[in-house]
Lab assay of single mutants.
Amino acid sequence: KSEISQVFEIALKRNLPVNFEVARESGPPHMKNFVTKVSVGEFVGEGEGKSKKISKKNAAIAVLEEL
């Protein structure tokens, strides 16, 4: 299972809201860097990556460590 689906499963079991959002985009158009924030109830994680998908996955990994 992907880290993102694990976050949603845990949140569902604990009845917590999940929110993913792109917090920052930086860099030139051909080499963008994304920072995504995820919140699961009061737990927050942040991930960085060269694409929105990678930064979302890294944010999920960060919040899984707290859950």
Rank of each mutant, 00 (worst) to 15 (best):
K1G: 10
K1R: 10
S2D: 06
S2M: 09
E3D: 07
E3C: 09
E3H: 09
E3S: 09
I4W: 06
I4D: 06
Q6G: 03
V7Q: 02
V7S: 02
V7N: 02
F8P: 05
F8T: 07
F8I: 09
I10T: 04
A11D: 02
A11I: 00
A11H: 00
A11E: 01
A11C: 01
L12H: 13
L12T: 10
K13S: 09
R14E: 07
R14V: 03
N15C: 07
N15G: 14
L16K: 05
P17Q: 13
V18T: 01
E21K: 13
E21R: 12
V22N: 11
R24M: 11
R24P: 13
E25N: 15
E25K: 15
E25V: 13
S26R: 07
G27M: 06
G27I: 08
P28M: 07
P28D: 10
P29H: 11
H30E: 13
H30P: 09
M31S: 15
M31Y: 12
K32M: 10
K32W: 05
F34Y: 15
V35A: 08
T36A: 08
T36W: 00
K37I: 04
K37G: 01
V38K: 04
V38F: 06
V38A: 09
S39T: 15
V40K: 01
G41H: 02
G41M: 00
G41R: 00
G41P: 03
E42W: 07
F43Q: 06
F43S: 08
V44D: 08
G45L: 03
G45N: 03
G47D: 02
G47S: 02
E48K: 15
G49C: 00
G49S: 05
S51W: 03
S51T: 15
K52F: 05
K53Q: 09
I54G: 06
I54N: 05
I54E: 15
I54K: 12
S55W: 00
K56W: 01
K56F: 05
K56M: 06
K56G: 03
N58Y: 06
N58T: 03
A59G: 03
A60N: 01
A60W: 00
A60C: 12
I61S: 13
A62D: 09
A62G: 07
V63F: 01
V63I: 12
L64P: 05
E65C: 06
E66D: 13
L67W: 05
L67K: 04
L67S: 03
L67D: 02
L67V: 05
